[in-house]
Simulated scan of single mutants.
Amino acid sequence: MHQSVDYNAPAMAPPPGVVPNFNEPAGNPSLGYGIVISSSVISVLAVAARLVSSAIAKKFVLEDLLLVIALGIFAGNQYVTYDLSIYPGVWAHQWDINNEFLIHFLYNIHLGAVFYGPIAMCIKVAILVNWLRVFVPHGIRDATWWILQTLLWVNVVFYVITTLTEIFRCWPREIIWNPFIEDEGSCPIDVEAQNIATSLLNFISDTTILAMPQWIIWKLHLPRNRKWGMSFLFVVGLGAWTFGIVRLVYFVKLLDTEDVVWPMSGVAIWTIWEVTTGFLIMGIPAFPRIAKAMPVSESVASFFRSFSSGSKPTSQNTSKGNNPQWQFMYKPKSRRRRSVFEISELETHDLVSIRSTEDVEAGRARPELTAPGGAQSPSQLQTP
């Protein structure tokens, strides 16, 4: 049964001295347009770079499919955000919309929440599967493998459950977005607690995604300047970690206010940038391979090469047949079968074959196959 309600009245009583303005709410539509358009362009470019890189390698993997699915669902989320940017705009207040529009607003928020679970799951599973491919040698079941596998399946189970509970948290479902229904149905799911739990899981998984590559890279037998260069390729994860924390802050604000419209702008904005950064984590390492395939590849790729080498080859270290250090990681193309995925110009198993000191001491790697500096010589690097 619906309440007898004035749908033209303000959706919330305004503060003293404030006059509701339905025609020109205090929200900022232009900011919303800019965020939606810019994040959409960045996300599309990141996924396109990944797909082009895989096409160049003539090998598409599970991560590519997951990113395409995530991008498709993200388009739906972007449409919802764009719709609310038109009216009332981001950072609007609830007293500047009427009760009729509040129903539309809450329905769009519900759609955004439903979209978020599959998007986050696909991106994070893609990242974690890729980390397994890059950092764990085939057949190895070490601590890294168990951490990544555990986090992967926890994310899958959690996001499937939270998506279903978001869809069916009230019955009839109209109660989710229509606060003027009473005396029928129920909402047994505490959606606020669920949102906080989602944000906390994001924090844990984002922290792991940020820290895991750094933890592995800094254990490798490599010169410090090369470690810094390789770390740079993965540091974009810091963005997702930061945006996830800010998103959590705005969720907490929702617990202490009746004006749900204003903090929801913060949740929407930082969710968009968190997701966009997730696409970048997978897309940025693909750009060097694309640059190398371009007609002007040598000049373009040298820019990226400088990050991982820490120095450019000189006549001194290239003379007399000596290979410069960076050639351990940047080898000319050969006829041998290449890895299914490259991080920058790095072969997948250039990373996993460079053993840490602990692995060598424990006898899990054969020192005789290790070149100076910890990297295997190019002739010994084989993809299983």
Score class of each variant (00 low, 15 high):
T276Y: 10
W177T: 02
S377E: 13
A193L: 10
S339A: 14
T348C: 12
Y33S: 02
A75R: 03
F158Y: 15
T208S: 14
K219T: 12
L210C: 14
I103W: 02
L71Q: 11
D83A: 15
I290Q: 09
E274M: 14
V134F: 07
H93F: 09
T165K: 09
V267M: 00
S379T: 11
A26E: 06
G139V: 09
M121I: 02
L84G: 01
M12C: 03
F243P: 08
D6K: 02
T271A: 10
A268V: 10
V41W: 07
A55L: 12
F328L: 13
G112H: 06
R335G: 13
V267Y: 00
V191T: 12
I42R: 04
G321M: 00
V134W: 02
V160N: 06
S315H: 05
R366G: 08
V156Y: 03
S379N: 14
I176L: 09
G278N: 04
L102I: 02
S43H: 08
V300I: 15
G112E: 07
F22Y: 01
D190S: 02
F60P: 03
F115M: 09
L381M: 14
I35C: 05
G185S: 10
M12A: 09
I97C: 00
T150E: 03
Q94S: 03
I97N: 00
V235K: 09
N155P: 06
E166N: 13
Q214R: 09
A301L: 13
P15Y: 08
V157H: 07
D96G: 00
L71G: 07
L67Y: 10
H104G: 05
P367I: 11
G112L: 08
M282N: 10
L65F: 12
D350G: 12
E258K: 08
P295M: 10
T242I: 15
N317Q: 02
G89E: 00
W171N: 15
I97H: 00
I109F: 03
E368F: 11
E342S: 13
M1Y: 08
V47D: 11
R338W: 10
E342M: 14
L222E: 01
A193H: 03
I123Q: 04
L220W: 02
K312S: 12
V352F: 12
T242L: 14
E274G: 11
F232S: 15
A268K: 04
I140Y: 10
I196A: 04
M212Q: 15
P332R: 06
G363C: 05
A57Y: 06
A197M: 13
L369I: 09
M212P: 02
V136T: 08
G185Q: 06
L132P: 02
L132E: 03
L255I: 00
K333A: 14
A286V: 11
E368S: 15
T348S: 15
N130C: 10
Q3M: 12
H138F: 11
E347Q: 14
Y330Q: 07
